[in-house]
């Protein structure tokens, strides 16, 4: 177990298996490459992507398949390739959630730019599915 300092959660112990590495960072945050993922609460559809490089940087994520049961089922070949990795290992897919200030009911999830985590290597990247028809501001309504 490793101890990490965070603004939101204070000092927490993290499981090394839950860490993820973004070799290219996230768009807008190119030099923040190390994060860990934790459940918001048991049974909650939300997870946290907390930066290990910057205590105050944390994103809310949601499982996009809870918002759209057919998510990623009808991608073009090129976009499908973007989701894969060289070893063809299993990947986990998450969507970042945006909550406009003071307007929690207007929260959206980014289905156009999912976070893809290789479950074995724990390497992650954000993929842009520009031709998929998915919105970067998909309403947060669970189906």
């Amino acid at each position: 177990m490793k101890k990490i300092n965070t603004t939101r959660f204070g000092e927490i112990e993290i499981d090394e298996e839950k860490t993820v590495h973004f070799p290219d960072g996230l768009l807008g945050f190119p030099d923040k490459k190390n994060y860990f993922i934790m459940e918001h609460k048991k049974g909650s559809p939300f997870l946290w992507l907390q930066s290990m490089d910057s205590p105050d940087l944390a994103f809310v994520m949601v499982n996009p398949f809870l918002l759209d049961g057919d998510y990623l089922k009808a991608l073009s070949k090129d976009e499908e390739t973007l989701l894969k990795n060289e070893h063809d290992d299993e990947v986990l897919v998450f969507s970042l959630v945006t909550i406009p200030r003071g307007m929690i009911e207007a929260a959206t999830a980014n289905l156009m730019g999912p976070i893809v985590v290789e479950s074995k290597s724990r390497n992650a990247k954000q993929v842009i599915l520009a031709n998929s028809g998915y919105s970067h501001r998909h309403p947060l309504i669970f189906k």
Partner: peptide
């Protein structure tokens, strides 16, 4: 996508 990441943060 970049702006939405900043909003999401």
């Amino acid at each position: 996508i970049l702006n939405e990441n900043i909003n999401a943060s």
